[in-house]
Amino acid sequence: MNASQLFIGRRIVHKDFPPITRHQLALYCGASGDHNPIHVDLDFARQAGFPDVFSHGMLVMAYLGQALTDAIEPSRIRSFSTRFAAITQLGAKLTCEGRVAELFEDKGEKRARIALTTKDQNGEIKLAGEATIAL
C-alpha cells in the first residue's frame, strides 16, 4: 500500500476473532506466565466481585497486534501503543480495526498514523491505541 491509496478515515486493519474461551485463558496463562487467578479461577473472580473470570488485557492487545501485522508488513511498523478501556469478558467476540488518522512525513519517510480499536460484539471498546507505519 502506498501513500496514493490512503486517505484519512480509510480502514486498513480489520479482523474478527472467535469468542474467548476458558481454554484460551488457561493456555495464555501458561504461555505468558501470567497466572493471576482472576483470569482462570471462577471462585476467586466471584470473591473479587466479578460474575466470572475475564481475559488478560495483554491477550486482547495480542489480538490487536495480530490484526495489525496481518494488514501491515511488520518491518513497516514504526510504533504500536495501546490503552486498556474496559474488561473483556469470557465469551467476547472481538473485532480489531484500524483507520488512517494522519498522513505525514518524518525524516524523509512517508508515514501514516493509524487509530486502532478493539471492540466486542456489543460495540464496547475494550482497547484503543495507535500505530505509526511507513508507507
Rank of each mutant, 00 (worst) to 15 (best):
T95M: 06
N2L: 14
A112N: 06
I8M: 02
D52P: 07
R83A: 07
T88M: 04
I8R: 08
P19H: 08
T117Q: 14
R99P: 00
T88G: 06
C96H: 07
V100I: 15
E130F: 15
D43G: 00
A128L: 10
A131T: 14
G49L: 00
L6M: 15
R22Q: 13
Q89I: 06
I133L: 11
F44V: 00
L90K: 14
Q5I: 04
T82P: 05
V60K: 06
Y28K: 12
Q5K: 14
Q47E: 01
R22K: 12
H39Q: 02
N122V: 02
R11S: 03
E97G: 02
K126D: 02
T132E: 15
D41P: 00
T88S: 10
T132N: 12
E73Y: 03
G30T: 12
L127I: 14
H35A: 08
I38Q: 03
R83S: 12
E97T: 15
L25F: 11
D106R: 11
A115R: 09
E109Q: 08
K119D: 07
L116K: 08
N2F: 13
Q89C: 08
Q66K: 12
Q47G: 00
S75R: 13
E97Y: 02
E102D: 13
F7H: 13
N2S: 14
G91T: 13
R113D: 03
A92N: 06
A45F: 02
S55F: 03
P74C: 05
P37I: 00
G33I: 10
E124Y: 06
G91C: 10
S4C: 10
C29Y: 07
A131C: 12
G108S: 04
E102N: 11
D34N: 14
L27S: 13
T118I: 09
T21Q: 07
Q121I: 08
H56S: 04
S32N: 14
T132L: 08
A26T: 15
G98Q: 07
H35I: 07
I77S: 08
R99K: 05
M58N: 10
Y63S: 01
H56D: 03
A45H: 01
I72Q: 01
L27R: 15
Y28H: 13
L64F: 05
G123A: 10
V40Y: 05
L25V: 12
R11G: 00
M61W: 09
L127W: 13
L94S: 10
A26V: 15
H14Y: 11
L116H: 06
F104L: 06
A67E: 04
E97F: 01
H35T: 12
H14R: 07
A71E: 03
A101M: 01
A134W: 02
E124R: 13
H56M: 04
T117K: 15
V13H: 05
A3S: 15
A45R: 02
H14M: 00
A131V: 13
G129Q: 09
G33L: 12
H23F: 09
R78W: 01
F44K: 00
E130C: 11
P51N: 07
G30E: 13
S81W: 13
L90W: 12
F80N: 11
I114P: 09
E109A: 08
Q121K: 07
F84E: 09
G65I: 05
A134N: 06
P51K: 10
H39R: 05
K107N: 02
G91E: 08
F44Y: 11
S79M: 09
A67K: 03
N122A: 11
M61H: 08
R99V: 10
L68Y: 04
A3G: 09
